[in-house]
């Protein structure tokens, strides 16, 4: 993973199996060429705010953040709050990808300004399809403001 390269998708997911399956589904749709996978909320924030181990990276920001909610240290809700509360980062589309269909999580995410909320299907095929179509929509069909 080279930080000099442009990052298109930032995947924040603590479960390595889910991450691998996600990456594979995105790869099949040719969307994983510029993808970076981080394992928890703290690392994601460091990356986005160019701090700690990511202090020296070039300041290019991802076009899409795929965010899990249930994570150790800093959870997805907190990442969402910090990113959407930041003037420079708030325009980055964030898709929450989680197993939780709890109303509380959904409401909270939307209040914080999430762009999309996807419940991970339990079936592998459906999971695969959901990841692909989400990636395709946000990376190819959705239009974001020019920096």
């Amino acid at each position: 993973m080279s930080e000099l390269e442009m990052v298109e998708i930032l995947l924040v997911e603590d479960n390595s199996s889910d991450a691998e399956l996600t990456v594979r589904a995105l790869k099949k749709s040719n969307l994983a060429n510029h993808l970076i996978w981080l394992k928890d909320g703290a690392e994601a924030l460091d990356f986005l705010f160019c701090k700690e181990s990511h202090a020296g990276r070039l300041s290019g920001q991802p076009k899409l953040i795929m965010l899990d909610l249930k994570m150790p240290k800093i959870d997805g809700i907190e990442v969402l709050r910090r990113v959407k509360g930041d003037e420079h980062l708030k325009t980055i589309p964030i898709v929450v990808m989680t197993s939780s269909r709890e109303e509380k999580d959904i409401v909270e995410s939307y209040k914080l300004g999430v762009n999309s909320y996807v419940v991970k299907p339990v079936d592998f095929q459906q999971f695969h399809d959901a990841i692909s179509s989400t990636g395709l929509y946000w990376m190819l069909m959705n239009k974001v403001p020019e920096k």
């Binding site: 199996s17 889910d18 399956l21 197993s99 709890e102 339990v122 592998f124």
Partner: peptide, 18 residues
């Protein structure tokens, strides 16, 4: 039940998927 359904099925998805 919700936890069972998701926490049990998440590893299952991995087994099946892999």
């Amino acid at each position: 039940s919700y936890s069972v359904s998701h926490d049990l099925r998440s590893p299952l998805r991995a087994i099946n998927g892999f």
